[in-house]
């Protein structure tokens, strides 16, 4: 382990959250929980990204009082990237949820393995 683990605690938390979301995605049987895990994973990445821009003692990048020096504001790039990312994540979760609704309407269950078993049975008969 390197020296910066405790200085970078925000990023460490993001890494742990990423792992938890990933585990949810693999382990949960319920589709809704899988989607929540996906969302957790995404927001962990955004937290990871946003930590990059933060600089202690500087303020948000909105020009106030005509001050335009680098010393006054944090790095605006990560904020912009995360903004883009949030849009992506909300569209993806809407799509996943609508897929869930369609699957439930047809098979009345949320377990993906059960659904595939049912499909196989359906085709045999």
């Amino acid at each position: 382990m390197g020296a910066n683990l405790f200085v970078n605690y925000g990023e460490a938390v993001a890494a742990v959250l990423f792992g938890i979301g990933f585990g949810n995605l693999l382990l949960q049987k319920n589709l809704i929980k899988k989607i929540i895990g996906l969302n957790i994973m995404d927001s962990a990445v955004y937290l990871f990204l946003a930590e990059k821009g933060y600089i202690i003692g500087r303020t948000a990048p909105i020009v106030t009082g005509g001050v335009q020096s680098v010393e006054a504001y944090i790095n605006p790039i990560p904020s912009g990237l995360v903004l883009t990312g949030i849009v992506v994540s909300v569209s993806v979760s809407a799509l996943m949820l609508s897929l869930t609704i369609r699957l439930y309407r047809r098979y009345h269950t949320l377990d993906l393995d059960q659904i595939s078993l049912m499909i196989k049975k359906e085709e045999e008969t």
Binding site: G10, A50, Y54, P78, I86
Partner: peptide, 10 residues
């Protein structure tokens, strides 16, 4: 983290 834009959006 000083990103009010993100706070509103989130």
């Amino acid at each position: 983290l000083e990103s009010p834009d993100l706070a509103i959006t989130e």
